[in-house]
Amino acid sequence: MRMLPTGEYIPGHSFLHRLDARVKLPCFFILMAAVIGAASLWGYVLVVAVIAVLILLSGLPLPAAVASVRRIYGFLLVIFLMNALFFGGEDVLASWGIVQLSRGGMEQGFRVVGNVVLILVLGNLLTMTTLPTQVTAALASLIKPLKFIGVPTEEVAMILSIAIQFIPTLMEETELIKMAQIARGARFESRKLPERAASFIPLVVPVFISAFRRAEELALAMEARGYRNAQNRTRRKKEPLALRDYGALTVCTLICLVQFLLRRC
């Protein structure tokens, strides 16, 4: 399916849409920690409630927010089974050789699957309310402190923003090349592994060649226009964070703290 330069982004004006990406990214990771830290039933109730509120705040229709969960349904089943049958926990319910269905394993299975689903939904909420360009700008901002340990943050920021700008073109080219090769009879099957790998050459080689060609053109253009290093680039003025951004950050941190306090009980 066609991917827009905006990825999974769904336009909107909800609270989540209006939050600054520089706050949304850390909040996401904080909430992810809260999910992983859930150790009891109340712990899970907390995070599920938080996520439900977030879905409301995002203005996104529920099916959209959980779409990707349905896609990996099979995968989740495998993870659950692997834990349930191989965990080797207490309370063995049945066993066939090395396979042991245990209560501990099933609990663990639910926990792992639950974590994956919750983090997935959190991730969706992030990607659906944030434009890719906002994401890279936020990343560039957030890595600024690394400057103190010698990381060339301006150069990294520039590379990230060039990468983002290339994505739509690369996407189009890849689609065209794929279709052209399929039209010539390319097949990506085969029993034997080396053959299977080799069958991707007609797709992978042209894609990389055309991508590197564009890169070379850009590099030449940049050098021709006197580009020397990323420090001297003119930058757009950064918008200051709003009250809601600080509020969101505080609330998320509090939620995480509560979660870890709950673990103590």
Binding site: I159, L160, I162, A163, M171, T174, K178, R214, A215, E223
Partner: peptide, 20 residues
């Protein structure tokens, strides 16, 4: 500059290839 832009393109391909 070449290395930087090639890296940018590789990062872009990290995003694009899985979709293809």
């Amino acid at each position: 500059v070449q290395r930087a832009v090639f890296t940018a393109v590789c990062i872009g391909l990290c995003v694009v290839l899985p979709m293809a």
